[in-house]
């Protein structure tokens, strides 16, 4: 059986908000290491990889591996009933038909109990090779969100160019063109507000802004975001949170 108690409902609520528009149904794979999810969007352009490590829960118990097939829209509806500060407990039997969710208020004067039907999802897992990326860019998550939103007003796609001079986000469309260049900064007082660029070679890749804007729905989960790129491979966008991560992979566009 699974029993996982999470001190802050907000973590799960924000995580769902960050993935439910990209993925409709997904298996939450539970093991003694924690709860993970890997799913592609319908058009097979983007992939979401979530890990909530066992040590992020207190307590966490999972006797045998379980795949909980969940409609993310349904889970999101149930989680709307949880307050951000509530303590959430997830429970499932072995070979379960339902997932049980309990929301307790901080001072335990209100306990809400929900049961959600599970579904059978035959989901293939993709092998994601360990990659030493040529460019690793860490920046404030809010900055990345703003850049993607601003450039999506100009064009459907953005070219990200990482070089020793900085990282340049550039878009060109019918109304004109625009770009934002970030230089490396160091803010010892507020490391989350710094931009760092680690580069072994220059990288230039073009991506759909629709997907990037979608990824930035994870902004409330983390102060910083890391973009990892190599030429001709998918972009990795990572939001690290306490007790896990939310990663998005996005296939690049290629020139005709």
């Amino acid at each position: 059986m699974l029993e996982a108690r999470l001190a802050q409902a907000a973590v799960l609520k924000k995580t769902l908000d960050a993935i439910k528009e990209l993925v409709t149904d997904a298996n939450f794979d539970c093991s003694d290491g924690g709860i993970s999810l890997q799913a592609m969007d319908n058009s097979h352009v983007a992939l979401v990889s979530l890990l909530l490590r066992a040590d992020g829960f207190e307590p966490y118990r999972c006797d045998r591996n379980l795949a909980l097939g969940i409609n993310l829209n349904s889970l999101s509806k149930v989680l709307r009933s949880a307050q951000n500060e509530d303590i959430i407990t997830l429970k499932a039997a072995d070979d379960p038909d339902n997932l049980s969710l309990t929301f307790e208020s901080q001072n335990q004067d209100r306990i809400s109990e929900y049961e959600m039907k599970l579904m059978d999802i035959d989901q293939e897992h993709l092998g994601i090779p360990e990659t030493a990326y040529a460019a690793v860019i860490t920046m404030p998550a809010a900055e990345f969100q703003r850049i993607c939103r601003d450039l999506s007003g100009i064009s459907e796609s953005v070219t990200i160019d990482a070089s020793k001079d900085g990282v340049k986000f550039a878009s060109a469309g019918d109304i004109g063109n625009g770009s934002v260049t970030l230089k490396q900064t160091h803010n010892p007082e507020e490391p989350a507000l710094s931009t760092s660029i680690e580069l072994s070679e220059s990288v230039t890749l073009t991506f759909s802004l629709k997907y990037l804007v979608n990824f930035t729905k994870a902004t409330p989960l983390a102060g910083a975001v890391t973009l990892q790129m190599s030429n001709d491979v998918p972009l990795l966008v990572e939001y690290k949170m306490e007790g896990g991560y939310l990663r998005y992979y996005l296939a690049p566009k290629i020139q005709d």
Partner: peptide
Amino acid sequence: GSQQRALDFFFKPK
């Protein structure tokens, strides 16, 4: 112009 590639091109099923 540019064409969107699918992820399956890069990542293979396990």
